[in-house]
Simulated scan of single mutants.
Amino acid sequence: MTAEKGLPVDLRAFHNEVEGHLLAAAARQEAHAAAARFTAGLAWLPETQRGELERQFAEEHLALARASWQRTARRGDELRGEYEAVYRSLRARLLAGLLLGIALVVAADLVVLVSV
């Protein structure tokens, strides 16, 4: 698949970008809905102040969501690094065990051949 200008399209990157936009749009909608619910009980505030409070509430809600996503992404990167290190260690141990096993089999074969 190619883009309009003939450049190849990385479908995974495209999917991630679309998903990111959809998640951001959903977070904005959620923030505005939460702000509207919050300010609905403040009927005594003038409309302009209620609108400003709703805007500030939505901004704060989005900032908290963004911070949460960033913490989650950072922790995911940390876990990926930890698991990759464990995987490399296990792979090295498996290879060492495999080489040791092969060496023992070869040594046993040589002992049998020499003794015959």
Rank of each mutant, 00 (worst) to 15 (best):
L11T: 13
P46V: 01
R91D: 02
L99M: 09
A31W: 03
A67N: 13
A27F: 11
A67F: 06
R88Q: 12
W44N: 06
F14T: 10
L94A: 08
R12C: 09
G41M: 00
H61A: 12
L22A: 01
E52Y: 13
W69P: 11
G76Y: 05
T72K: 15
R50W: 03
A63S: 13
V111C: 04
E17V: 07
F14H: 14
L22K: 05
A33I: 00
L99K: 13
I102S: 03
R12T: 09
D10M: 06
H32F: 08
A31S: 04
G51C: 08
E52Q: 14
R50G: 03
V116H: 13
V111T: 05
E82G: 07
A103C: 01
R71I: 07
A58I: 01
Q70A: 10
A73D: 11
L100V: 02
A36H: 07
A43Q: 04
L45S: 08
R55P: 07
R50V: 01
L64W: 08
A36E: 06
R12W: 08
L98Y: 12
S115N: 03
V112Y: 03
A35F: 05
T48S: 12
T48G: 06
G20I: 05
E47D: 06
G20T: 05
E54P: 03
V112S: 01
E19C: 12
A3K: 14
L113I: 00
A33T: 05
L53N: 09
S68G: 12
A40S: 05
R66K: 15
A107G: 08
R93Q: 07
L95A: 06
L104H: 00
L22H: 03
T72C: 13
H61Q: 13
A108F: 00
R88T: 07
L100H: 07
A35V: 02
Y83L: 15
R66A: 11
E84H: 14
F14D: 07
R91C: 00
L99A: 07
P46M: 02
A33P: 00
G76P: 02
R75I: 05
A103F: 00
T72D: 09
R88C: 03
L42V: 00
F38K: 11
A24R: 15
F14C: 11
L45E: 06
R71D: 09
R12M: 12
S68V: 07
A108I: 00
A34M: 03
R71G: 13
F57Q: 04
A35P: 04
R93L: 01
V116E: 07
L90S: 11
G6A: 01
A63Y: 04
E59W: 10
R55K: 15
G51I: 03
N16S: 12
R91F: 00
A25H: 01
H21K: 15
A43I: 00
R91E: 04
F14G: 08
S89M: 10
S89Q: 13
V18E: 09
R91H: 03
